[in-house]
Design a protein around this nucleic acid. Structure first.
Lengths: 359, 359
DNA sequence: TCTTCCTCTGAATCTTGGC
DNA sequence: GGCCAAGATTCAGAGGAAG
């Protein structure tokens, strides 16, 4: 009946979708072709050439053709989705309006549109438009009536240092170590998404063990994030080369332990600056240990940026206060991590993230 | 024939649009109904009110009706727009996908989607979704071929601390003093936009004196910003109460003086000075030597303003490109002459000629 | 080892005027 | 319309070389 999770299915996405059973997945994450319509080459002011996305899979004859394709895969995704499931689709102004309209027409119910603000976007080299510094994600439930979609409100609030998570997320592009390379050292895939983005999507809208379907799997960012966070995945990909890279990549991921996945389930109150983002950015990992200034007390980091010591759990500030029996505590200066130079306050990690966001 | 600018036309927006002449406005700014589906107003093209909807069949009906209405006013706006004109539309996830699709289908060409990040959004009180902290604007030219839309790149860059203006704009909501109140002290209009938002839109995409059409004028934020910035407006509004408030509001606006409106101009707009004119003016002499930025390459100036290096000869741009084996080169910034302060780009000589011409 | 400088690159619908 | 030539145009971050 069902499909074995944690697999990559090779082949055309719509054909593969047709073989999946009704109401069998908890979440769909889709990064479809954007249908960019580029002119000729684009040169930077230093005369170097921009490595454009001109792959065959992004070419469509017309908006009609793109719509037809979009509506076909969306209809199948909706069929495959459980009634309390949800979908995420990411896109740019080239395609996102058409995707959003198709979603609504298919009966999905939009819950939010989310802006991925890029801290380091490519500039507009010719000075002709505003720097295209964001992409848009649409989050939608299967239907208007479906009230029981998963939303881990408190985990998101915790990850945003006790302020409600907003609809705009500031995150850097996928570059450096994280970016998969081919044998020649060139980027393996032209549009690899940062795992931090998928981390937040998955933490917000799934439960541990949930099955996440990605119909445009590429090099498997969704699979990597799913495995790391104790979720399962089904990836559809038509390019065997990408599928192979994805498989190898996911195999290397170390899932975080179940107790670290146990995110906050109740409310608290205190102020400013997202510790959860330190975890998303990979500067600390769920399961890492933090220490008080003298090192005699240790707390464990969880996936949503909450800390645990014994029975105590909460934000960095709250837990810091509790272990000292103090009315309040600045967690940023109280908690330390082990660096190669000994214990260092986590505030230095915040500074790192801030410098990324300042852009 | 034409329409007197700086007026508010009372009546149905589509009917009023039909009376405006072809190609008569430079910019359209539209803040249409968002189709929130909260039991609020949704208008059919004939202006009859759609009943509140709460089942799936009616939902489909309402999207269709919304699309029909949207496509009707967009088609009229496009007709009324000059060929080098542009349009802005603002919306939220409830309607923006449908508006964007309709824009593309009508032949408009999307230039950017802009995110208005609200610094002080209303929280999500029930904790069921992400805080809806932004709205989306779409900026589009009249057609794909239209390259000559107005974009004051340098003014925008200046306004952003000498960095390219990005596609995400952080601005507060319209509150406090700025928010228009009715006799009872309640807000006069439910969706009044901040004038700062219109300020940026108008400064970015119009020239002084341009005519800006707003088909959903409301309490006249577009008119107020247009007047303040030395632009003209045409407002369409069917509610006489709003129109009256708008008129009073705009009358109080003190326009910025013309010299203060003189924003950073584009270099492209400056008068052309052929390099030969530098020689004619005696600022360089035939036989003089020009150097590349680091001084290791030298070229000789000839009487007609061409350069020579060995076998190579041609314009300052051509020779600059050739010596670097680059596809292109701006000779004005590449070539330097020996001044009493060391090497200086020949662009300073061009500036000298330009200032003489202006005098 | 620690700075400083240089190079490279990222989903990009990326020029304009005259002949 | 097409073609050609003038000439305008980039930000953040990673990584490696140079000092």
């Amino acid at each position: 009946m069902g499909v074995t999770p944690d697999t990559i299915i090779l082949g055309d996405c719509i054909e593969s979708l047709r073989k999946l059973p009704d109401r069998s997945v908890d979440l769909v994450f889709a990064d479809p072709p954007y249908n960019l319509q580029l002119g000729g080459d684009l040169l930077r002011p230093d005369n170097s050439k921009v490595d454009a996305v001109d792959d065959e899979w992004d070419q469509f004859e017309s908006f009609e053709a793109y719509d037809k394709f979009t509506r076909a895969w969306l209809a199948e995704c909706r069929r495959v989705l459980k009634d309390d499931g949800a979908i995420w689709v990411i896109g740019s102004y080239h395609n996102i309006f058409r995707v959003g309209t198709a979603l609504q027409d298919a009966g999905f119910w939009v819950l939010n549109d989310i802006i991925w603000r890029k801290s380091n976007p490519m500039p507009n080299f010719k000075g002709t438009r505003f720097t295209n510094a964001h992409e848009t994600l649409i989050w939608a439930s299967k239907s208007r009536g479906a009230r029981r979609y998963t939303f881990n409100y408190d985990a998101m609030k915790m990850a945003n240092d006790e302020l409600q998570m907003r609809s705009d997320w500031t995150l850097p592009l996928c570059t450096g170590e994280e970016r998969l390379k081919d044998e020649t050292g060139a980027k393996a895939h032209p549009t690899q998404k940062p795992e931090a983005l998928l981390h937040r999507v998955i933490l917000a809208s799934t439960k541990p063990g949930d099955i996440i379907l990605d119909p445009f799997f590429g090099t498997g960012t969704t699979g990597a994030a799913a495995r790391r966070l104790g979720r399962r995945y089904i990836g559809l990909e038509r390019d065997p080369g990408y599928a192979k890279l994805a498989k190898e990549r996911i195999a290397k991921v170390v899932p975080i332990s179940p107790e670290d996945l146990d995110v906050m389930g109740s409310k608290r109150a205190e102020p400013r600056v997202p510790f959860g983002q330190i975890v998303e950015a990979g500067l600390l990992r769920p399961g890492d240990t933090l220490y008080c200034p003298k090192g005699e007390r240790a707390a464990r980091v969880r996936a949503d940026g909450s800390l645990v010591i014994g029975e105590m759990a909460g934000s960095i500030h709250k837990v810091g206060a509790m272990v000292q029996s103090a009315p309040a505590c600045n967690g940023w200066t109280y908690w330390h991590f082990k660096s190669d130079k000994g214990l260092a306050p986590i505030d230095v990690l915040r500074a790192k993230v801030r410098s990324q966001m300042a852009a």
